[in-house]
Nucleic acid binder design. Structure first.
Lengths: 163, 163
DNA sequence: CGTGAAACATTAGCGGC
DNA sequence: GCCGCTAATGTTTCACG
């Protein structure tokens, strides 16, 4: 959880791996002007410290049939921060449900009037509508929602700035 | 851009690589019950078709010192959808600027009252404030903005649902 | 940090279902 | 068409200087 100090070489390595996570260690080593073994030691260290969280393949949403991207603001019921009946508080119950819904790829608790912001990938508006009616709006913790739909992707990168 | 047909094996491969993008071809092959060569051919094919867009390393924002995540709604000036002076229209000018700002990791044009939704990673509130005052609000295309800050990450995955 | 060598992975060609 | 074998080439990953 704490911030970790990174030297220039570490940052170069991270920048290279943020752009291509499948580079061979040899290629990374070349690009950061190191020989393979110290480079590998640094990479393993960055993995160990949790600076590198994961390696993943990124898919093209449209090519796998997910043509609609929505951001949904959710407001929860206010009553029962501690449930009387022994159930979960609304926030915990909602968080648990979100983990189960595959179309919700991201969910953050936020400041402001809305409690949560969801990123939702679905095939089309019909599927979105079904998800709303049959799942999200039926959830007992949900008070109301406001949805917006992506018209155009200007930029979307997983690469964080390494100042 | 078009949707691509995937059989069960392709979907298994994608699901495995979305969870770990550095698996060796041999390991992928084992998990999908294929021998290495057809598995590799399928993976290369999925890359070629653009279903797999990219392989990346995901970093932990906090551990590299980015402790604050904001979502910023931006509304643009309405006048001059085509600029008289030969400059870019506000939307195009704004999009071009967004590409240059490293703290903005995502930007979508959206339906609704706000024109754009930005995801912004910064060190702390002071840096956010500086980014607002000195960069975003100074941009000639920007009319006004509304910011919300992430209090808690419930879920955030790059893995898309493979229905 | 760099070198070298063993273990392991990738990938093209070819034959079979 | 798609699968699986084999064999050459390239990569990873140590112990050690």
């Amino acid at each position: 959880m704490a911030k970790i100090e990174l030297d220039k070489t570490d940052r170069k390595i991270l920048s290279v791996l943020q752009a291509d996570g499948r580079l061979t260690n040899q290629e990374v080593a070349e690009r950061v002007n190191l020989s393979p073994s110290p480079c590998l030691r640094r990479i393993r260290n960055l993995e160990q410290m949790g600076v590198i969280r994961q390696y993943v393949a990124l898919l093209d949403a449209e090519r796998i049939g997910l043509g609609l991207l929505a951001y949904v603001n959710v407001r929860l019921e206010r009553h029962g921060e501690r449930s009387a009946g022994g159930g979960l508080a609304p926030r915990a119950a909602f968080a648990a449900s979100v983990m189960e819904w595959p179309e919700v790829v991201a969910c953050y608790a936020m400041t402001g009037e809305m409690d949560f912001l969801l990123r939702v990938h679905v095939e089309d508006m019909e599927h979105f509508s079904r998800f709303m009616m049959e799942t999200l709006l039926r959830h007992p913790a949900v008070l109301d929602v406001k949805s917006s739909f992506a018209l155009q992707r200007i930029k979307d990168t997983t690469a964080l700035p390494l100042a």
